[in-house]
Design a protein around this nucleic acid. Sequence first.
RNA 1: UGGGGUGUCGCCAAGCGGUAAGGCAUUAGAUUCUGACUCUAACAUUCGAGGGUUCAAAUCCUUCCACCCCAGCCA
Length: 559
Amino acid sequence: MTISKPIEATNFIENEINKDIEEGRVPSCVQTRHPPEPSGYLHIGHVRNIVLNYGLAEKYNGICNLRYDDTNPSKESQEFVDSIQEDVKWLGYHWKEIHYATEYFQQNYEIAVKLIKEGKAYVDDLSAEEVSAYRGTLTEPGKESPYRNRSVEENLDLFERMKNGEFEMGSRCLRAKIDMASPNINMRDPVIYRIQYLHHQRIGDSWKIYPSYDFSHPLDDCLEGVTHSICGPEFEDHRPLYNWVVENSGLKNKSRQIEYANLYLKGVILGKRFIKKLVNDGKVSGFDDPRLYTIRGLRRRGVLPESLVNFVNAAGISKAVSVIDPAMLDYFIRSTLNDVSKRVMAVVDPIELVINNIGENEEIEISLADYPQREETTHRKYYFGKHLLIERSDFEIVPPPKYRRFFVGNEVRLNGAYIVKCTGYDTDENGNVTTVYADYDPETKSGTNCAKKVKGTVHWVNKKHSKNVEIRLFENLTLPKEESLSGGKEQTAGEDEFNPNSLIIKNGFVEDDIDYNEEERYQFLRNGYFCLDKDSTKDLLVFNRTVGLKDSYKPNNNQ
RNA sequence: UGGGGUGUCGCCAAGCGGUAAGGCAUUAGAUUCUGACUCUAACAUUCGAGGGUUCAAAUCCUUCCACCCCAGCCA
């Protein structure tokens, strides 16, 4: 039993930061920011960004602020701003301060005015379609807008009137005057302010003009004292623009943008838009559905935050697109859970086991260790008796080679109780096994250090001392197409593309005094971790998944 | 197609001119009152491909190939 330890990571971003510090470009305490747009729930793909930003600040004794990139009210809501804070806290990270891009609107505006005065920005009257048409294509340069060379006075006046709400939404915008012929499309006079008459969740209707990401983000970074602005790969071509804004802002603090690759899990749905669609279509119960890889979905599945952090650190970081095998995540989930899980007995798919040589009402008290994986553990009482339940898969009429569990003539240990010898079985008219019979050996009680050793140990539950529960086995909710995992693009998926086996409901049994406890994690069988859920329709829900679904017994390989 | 980026074991990923770290997965074995956990061992003569420079290259030069991102008044 090892205690999972935090994984130290060094990566190319740290190398860059170290260089900046050594060469005196930034103070040794760096400042980062975690800049989510409050337009969705956080998911596993965001954890890398969180670990990086908060982690880097921690590592360099700097600070990391949470800053909502809330410059597009049409997509954002308070629900998302609240959930993001909860999720970050749950992950174990702390921001120094909370800021909003909207807090900086006045300063953003003043800098825009300064740019206009310097002839570096102009109000364009072209429609959105025209702007697009004038922009050119990937291979052809763009055309300059006829409004590009308006006088500073006219621009100032127009921009002021935009701000005052005198124009229609979309009728005009403010553009940075850079280079319409640039091979980098982002530099072809990007729009930096647009007119927007939408109600904003934080600032209401106070502003009629909204800066674009490309304008506000670098400014807010500099204003806040950020030294390193870590972002996704999609902003790589925006870096020249980022730097242009920083250079022309007149701000003394100059932040530097560094991009890293996003993290995907093979076959796992992560797109914000996609997750929303699943929720809206009722495919899943909500943003916290355990099949989802949202932070809260994972959490509800019983995953612990350190698993996520360790996973992300172990996966490392580079600029190459990384599509990680979910088995790796599972490993980190298991390794954390293994340390903390209470071992209990439960049977997912039961068949009856009758002990021949014990009285109908006879009961033998046994003691079960709650945490056998630890040096010290508490114990609980349980009862061995005549009518027990075992897992259907723990009995075979014709045992495959090397099979260690129940088959007629074989001896097996009932976990925590006695060694038992299988004597026979009953089947129904269809040939399905209904009952298994066995004799127990009274000399082999658990804890007595009996000489007899047996290869297999089997979980069981006493029919009388167990309760019927609904057991929900969750598989990963995946898509067959790999391209569906991307976050940004329009994604289309038909209903039948979802894994239909993502939720399996079983009628199982658990020891009768195992009750809901938010903190507790459990393990039963050889491979399943679960937690109980308070929304249970019956006594409890069991969340399982690929966590530990590895079954070392593979008959086909053992022939 | 113009620009930007990336290609090291099935999957991540170190490496930055001195002769291929590590993790996941896999395989074999030990241990085991969970076929779990733990343990031990195996697992790239080779770094997208071809040329070149060098005593020496995954690391430098060069050509080519593949994949990703960019033409929102989204972020």
